[in-house]
Write a protein that binds this DNA or RNA. Structure first.
Lengths: 139, 139
DNA sequence: CGTATCCTAAGACAACTGTCTCATAACGTC
DNA sequence: GACGTTATGAGACAGTTGTCTTAGGATACG
């Protein structure tokens, strides 16, 4: 049977986010960070989550020190990309535009972001030439 | 321990989508529709999925006929809304604007949708007065 | 050395997902 | 009214997720 695609459940995502933010961290550091953010997990829970992430190949660990140091292997970009695609496919008939409209209608943007969005739109329609080689936007 | 929030996994979502499309359907009808769409599930699988959806309160069944007729209770809007919120919270720091930007950068819209988006933006920034009474977007 | 402390390993365990098998009840038809 | 068709019901079963317990190894420091 076809191996299910690697999926990152919510709890693992919370852990992964900490690694994205700090670049790397030990179990305890992740734990502390999450504690501050309100997640009341036990040490073992965090360790398990990190372990599962590593098994999935999403992060690696440096085991040369006593406490392993974990580091992300995939970027938040990649994960976001995947989640968004999935959402669009499942609920927006594969039409990202529908999701954009939905978002704008449901949550008004603040002025700054509205301006940014408009800028992107400009570029898209005004500057028609396909800039397909664009190296996937950095934020 | 707090009951986990009602979640609709992908397979159930596929079934639910059929109900949204057709308004209502029996197990067999759902099965046929999914078959045509390429989903090779057994009758029992579809029945289970419908059953689980009903348990979750997402759909209801009319049991007066031999074959139960299932009908959605929650709209696609609601489900979409929830999924999007979750995505934004988990991966876009609760900032819908970031997701919008991401979407626009990653997938150019076609002209029609671009225009629509612009229109929504206009309304948002130009017409500042809170028109909160707007009857929650019909598509 | 002794013992408190921190770390990982192993795995438990219930709930949820993905899928299916089998039993059994209702129906339609000759 | 017996037979094949279709339906539901019950539940099996492996894999995933959410969370933790317990055991045992390494470290630290008096």
């Amino acid at each position: 049977m076809a191996k299910r695609p690697t999926t990152i459940p919510d709890s693992e995502l919370d852990v992964l986010k900490v690694l994205w933010d700090r670049g790397q961290a030990t179990v305890r550091e992740v734990l502390e960070t999450l504690r501050e953010a309100g997640r009341q997990w036990s040490y073992a829970t965090v360790a398990t989550l990190l372990d599962r992430l590593e098994t999935k190949g999403v992060i690696t660990s440096d085991r040369s020190e006593l406490a392993f140091v974990y580091r992300p292997v995939v970027s938040s970009q990649e994960v976001r990309q995947k989640r968004v695609s999935n959402l669009v496919d499942k609920l927006y008939q594969g039409e990202p535009g529908l999701l954009v409209l939905h978002l704008l209608k449901a949550h008004p943007l603040d002025a700054k972001q509205a301006k940014e969005v408009r800028a992107v739109l400009e570029e898209m329609t005004g500057d028609k030439k396909k800039r397909s080689g664009e190296p996937s936007g950095q934020e």
